[in-house]
Computed example of a mutant assay.
Amino acid sequence: MKKEKFTYNYLIKIIKKAKNKKYKFISLKDYNKYKNKKKFLLRLDLDFYPKSLSGILEIAKKFKIPLTIYIRVAGPYNIFWYENYTIIKNAIDQGHTIGLHSNFIERAKLIKKSITKCIDDEITVLKKLFGNIITLAPHRDINYIENSLPWIEKNWSKIKKKHNFKFHAYEKKFFLNFEYINEGLNPHLCWRNITPETAMKKNKNIYMLIHPHWWFNKNPYEHY
C-alpha cells in the first residue's frame, strides 16, 4: 500500500472505507452503545492552530461523524480570541464533545502551583466559555518524562467527582475492545503502530486519534 499524505482527501477516504465496511462512528461518550455494530471512535487533540479544526469540522458535518475534541487552555493559542472561540463554539453547535487537553504536571512544576489547582483553573475557564465539560485528556508538551497519565489514573475518582467528569481519554475500557490508532513523528509524520486500513481489514473496533494541525487540504503549511 502506498504511503498516504495526511490530507483531507485521505481522511475522507478513511471515513468512506469505514462506512462501506459498516462501521458506526460514535463519540467517546457513547463507546458502550451499539453493541452489535463495529464501532469507530474519532478523537481530535487540538494541540496547535485552532483554525486547523475548520476543515475537519466540514468533513464531519458532511459525513455525519461525531467527534471528541480536546482543547488546550494553558497552551500556545488563546481560546478567548474571537476566531478561535468561534471555531470551538461551532464544533459544540454541531454536536461534538469538547474536553480539556492539559499538561498539568509540567505546568504545575513550572509555575509552582499544585497539580489540582492547575486542573481547577483550566477547567473553570473552559466551562465558563463553553458550558459543561465532561472529559479530559492529558497532554505532554516539553518534557516527555513527565507523563501525567499515571497521576490521573491514581487520582481519577477524586478528580472525576470534583469536576463531574464522565470519562478520560485513556481509560482502559477504550483500549480493551478497540484498536488504538494515532499519528505522530517517528521521526517523520506517520501512523505510529497500525494504519486505519490494516485495522479495518481485521474488522476490529477502532479508536483513532488525530491532530488537526497535521492534516491539510492543499499543503501542510496552510494552517501556519
Rank of each mutant, 00 (worst) to 15 (best):
K3I: 15
E4W: 11
K5L: 13
T7N: 02
T7W: 03
N9I: 13
N9L: 15
L11F: 13
K13T: 02
I14D: 01
I14T: 05
I15A: 01
K17L: 14
K17Y: 07
A18Y: 07
K21H: 04
K21N: 11
K24H: 13
F25P: 02
F25Q: 02
S27R: 12
L28N: 08
K29G: 00
K33Y: 10
Y34I: 03
Y34K: 08
Y34M: 03
N36K: 14
L41S: 02
L41I: 15
R43C: 09
L46K: 06
L46G: 00
F48E: 13
Y49C: 10
K51H: 09
S52P: 07
S52Q: 07
L53D: 06
S54G: 01
L57C: 03
E58V: 02
E58F: 08
I59P: 02
A60V: 14
K61H: 12
K61T: 06
F63I: 04
I65E: 04
P66F: 06
P66C: 07
P66N: 09
L67G: 00
T68M: 05
I69Y: 04
I69A: 03
I69P: 01
I69K: 06
Y70T: 01
I71N: 02
A74W: 04
G75K: 06
W81Q: 15
W81S: 13
E83Q: 14
E83H: 11
I87F: 11
I87V: 15
N90R: 12
G95H: 12
G95K: 09
I98A: 03
I98F: 07
G99W: 03
S102A: 11
I105P: 00
E106G: 01
R107I: 09
A108P: 01
L110W: 08
K112L: 09
K117Q: 08
C118L: 10
I119L: 14
I123G: 00
I123T: 02
I123M: 01
T124R: 14
T124I: 08
V125G: 00
L126T: 06
L129V: 06
F130W: 05
F130Q: 05
G131Y: 13
I134M: 03
T135W: 04
T135M: 03
T135P: 04
L136M: 15
L136S: 00
A137F: 03
R140L: 04
N143Y: 14
Y144S: 05
Y144V: 11
Y144D: 02
I145C: 00
S148W: 01
L149D: 01
P150C: 05
P150T: 05
K154A: 05
S157L: 10
K160I: 13
K162I: 12
H163V: 08
F165L: 15
F167A: 14
K173M: 10
N177F: 07
N177P: 05
N177G: 11
F178K: 04
Y180P: 00
E183W: 05
P187S: 09
H188N: 14
L189E: 01
C190A: 10
C190T: 15
C190P: 00
N193T: 15
N193R: 11
T195C: 01
P196R: 13
E197R: 07
E197C: 03
K201C: 01
K201D: 12
K201I: 06
N203Y: 11
N203K: 15
Y207V: 07
I210D: 02
H211W: 08
H213L: 07
H213D: 04
W215G: 06
W215Q: 10
F216Q: 09
F216S: 04
N217E: 15
K218E: 15
N219I: 14
Y221V: 05
H223Y: 09
H223R: 10
Y224A: 02
